[in-house]
Design a protein around this nucleic acid. Structure first.
Length: 224
DNA sequence: ATCCAGGCTGAGG
DNA sequence: CCTCAGCATGGA
């Protein structure tokens, strides 16, 4: 992680938003599945889609499907099975690529966990179809490493709350990690808070009227 | 019917 | 470095 200087203003703003979200929503365990491989698949299937469509695809594959089965499956068969998640031809290739990466560890999640976070992150980012958000989600929820997850809601929420959000994923990711001390549980929870809050109030067309953060949401009516 | 959802890649400026 | 078309289904 890069350590660029963070202004105290930005740090307080960021901590303030999370503090408000924590107070309002309380604790919850967010990712809907617990099996590491299901989480990895889910992280890919949910790309630019809602969880409902991704979940149908996961159900179609079966809750107990083993990585070796995905590795052995015909590409076209795999694609049809995950049709509901959208971009199914692309995602079939992505699932294959991710599974191939996992195969290098003999599908042994403990062997993966033994590796260093940054090493794993680079490996994941090198997998075709895995970008920043997917890599960080896999690190946090499937592998149990502290790597801050950024998504469209994180951008909107912080932009609307007056933060000058770095344009690149990496810079925003680094900023959050510089402000929020690395902790797997915290990072998992915070991403969950941002998505839950975002889904309720921070669509492209914001619903600021009932938003619990509206008082401090300076850009309440920005429509990005 | 149009718009959006828990992105990523590769080509081109 | 940055922008952007293309990828595709299902629900509102």
């Amino acid at each position: 992680m890069n350590t660029e200087p963070v202004t105290e203003h930005d740090a307080r703003l960021i901590r303030g938003v999370f503090h408000s979200l924590e107070e309002h929503y309380g604790w919850f365990d967010w990712w809907p599945t617990s099996d590491p491989y299901q989480i990895m698949m889910g992280a890919i299937l949910v790309q630019n889609t809602n969880w409902k469509n991704a979940e149908k695809a996961l159900d179609n594959l079966g809750k107990t499907i083993a990585p070796q089965q995905v590795a052995d499956m015909e590409l076209a068969t795999l694609a049809q099975a995950i049709r509901s998640s959208g971009y199914y031809n692309q995602k079939a290739l992505k699932l294959k690529a991710m599974t191939q990466w996992f195969a290098d560890y003999n599908y042994d999640i403990q062997a993966v966990r033994a590796k260093d976070t940054e090493v794993l992150r680079k490996q994941l980012l090198a997998v075709k179809g895995i970008g920043g958000e997917t890599a960080d989600a896999i690190l946090v929820y499937a592998i149990g490493k502290a790597s801050f997850v950024i998504d469209a809601y994180a951008r909107r929420i912080f932009e609307r709350n007056g933060l000058v959000v770095p344009k690149s994923y990496e810079k925003f990711h680094d900023l959050m990690e510089a402000v929020i001390p690395p902790n797997t549980k915290t990072y998992g929870y915070y991403h969950g808070l941002l998505v839950e809050h975002g889904q309720q109030f921070c669509h492209l067309k914001p619903k600021c009227e009932q938003c619990p953060l509206v008082a401090q949401c300076k850009g309440a009516f920005i429509t990005y």
